[in-house]
Simulated assay, not measured.
Amino acid sequence: MALLHINELYTGETAEIVAINSNCSDTRRLRDMGLREGRMVDMLHFDPLVSHKVVLGLDGTRLAFPLTLAAHIVVRPIKSHFETLRDMANYDQLTGCLNRHAANMILRHEIRRYADQELPLAVLMADIDHFKKVNDTFGHTAGDQILKKFAQVAGSALRRCDMLCRWGGEEFLVLLRGTVEEEAFQIADRIRRRVESITFPPYDACGLLTVSIGSAALLPGGNFEQLVAEADKALYRAKHAGRNRVATISDEC
């Protein structure tokens, strides 16, 4: 998060003190109050109009001092414990994508909503080709690097309304809102071409990585299980046809 002066925090926010302006003549006074670099403080009250004071919480103690002093304290806001736990529960810690648990809930809701309104929606199932060989050859640390890089590259090919999640292992699922089958195929192929064109660590000059993608569109009366199953079948078809390609369930064998 960006650095702020302490009087820019919201009431209830917690922040880490990063610096106290050493040119301030009252620096000693602030430090005598217990305010120093590395300490965590809570913004309890901020009144710029009447009392012109800031009230902070520090280890269970309330500290009140003028805004003129507060302006010399630079802080970094931090997430609450609840927000940290929520992110850990909903996001894959390696790639930063939504995890399967969170994606399941969002997908079910979005599929019902789009089906009820008879709007187009599609899903892509992407699988990094020969990923086991990468792990066996270069090690799992290298495999982790590839997963992180793949998530960045795939995400760069998507629109703001699309959702990328790590479905499991080297498999990723993409939700494409308001997207018909032809558009879904084009987006999938854009991902495939970007992945194909980039050298992934730890390959360097040793070779390029590829991805196979299955695409499926929501049919009238369709549900979550059917849509994901169709995308998975299309992915298998892409793998069976030689990898590094996009396939749909309607493709001929």
Results as ranks from 00 to 15, higher is better:
residue 18 V to I: 15
residue 65 F to W: 09
residue 76 R to A: 10
residue 66 P to H: 07
residue 69 L to M: 15
residue 64 A to I: 10
residue 55 V to H: 05
residue 45 H to G: 09
residue 26 D to M: 08
residue 24 C to E: 14
residue 41 V to F: 04
residue 68 T to Y: 04
residue 74 V to R: 11
residue 28 R to W: 10
residue 26 D to H: 12
residue 12 G to F: 03
residue 67 L to R: 10
residue 41 V to Q: 03
residue 61 T to C: 13
residue 52 H to E: 15
residue 17 I to R: 00
residue 10 Y to C: 13
residue 32 D to G: 08
residue 64 A to R: 14
residue 20 I to P: 01
residue 35 L to D: 01
residue 75 V to P: 02
residue 74 V to H: 08
residue 21 N to P: 07
residue 73 I to Q: 03
residue 16 E to I: 00
residue 17 I to W: 00
residue 13 E to S: 08
residue 39 R to N: 07
residue 67 L to E: 13
residue 59 D to Y: 06
residue 52 H to W: 10
residue 77 P to Q: 08
residue 41 V to R: 00
residue 39 R to S: 07
residue 69 L to A: 14
residue 51 S to L: 13
residue 75 V to C: 10
residue 77 P to S: 08
residue 51 S to Q: 15
residue 73 I to F: 04
residue 63 L to R: 01
residue 74 V to M: 11
residue 57 G to K: 02
residue 55 V to Q: 07
residue 57 G to L: 04
residue 27 T to K: 09
residue 66 P to E: 09
residue 69 L to G: 09
residue 71 A to F: 06
residue 59 D to I: 02
residue 65 F to A: 05
residue 15 A to S: 08
residue 43 M to N: 02
residue 50 V to N: 15
residue 33 M to G: 00
residue 21 N to I: 09
residue 22 S to I: 08
residue 55 V to K: 06
residue 63 L to Y: 02
residue 73 I to G: 01
residue 74 V to L: 12
residue 20 I to M: 03
residue 14 T to P: 00
residue 53 K to I: 09
residue 58 L to A: 02
residue 54 V to N: 06
residue 42 D to G: 05
residue 21 N to S: 11
residue 32 D to V: 01
residue 62 R to S: 09
residue 46 F to W: 11
residue 12 G to E: 06
residue 26 D to I: 05
residue 74 V to W: 05
residue 36 R to T: 09
residue 23 N to P: 07
residue 47 D to L: 14
residue 51 S to I: 13
residue 76 R to I: 05
residue 17 I to L: 00
residue 29 R to S: 12
residue 20 I to W: 01
residue 51 S to A: 15
residue 67 L to V: 12
residue 17 I to Y: 00
residue 64 A to M: 14
residue 37 E to F: 03
residue 72 H to D: 11
residue 56 L to S: 00
residue 47 D to K: 11
residue 52 H to F: 10
residue 45 H to F: 14
residue 21 N to H: 09
residue 26 D to A: 12
residue 20 I to D: 01
residue 33 M to R: 02
residue 22 S to M: 07
residue 65 F to D: 07
residue 41 V to T: 03
residue 14 T to C: 07
residue 41 V to E: 02
residue 54 V to H: 04
residue 54 V to E: 04
residue 28 R to F: 13
residue 70 A to G: 05
residue 32 D to A: 08
residue 60 G to L: 14
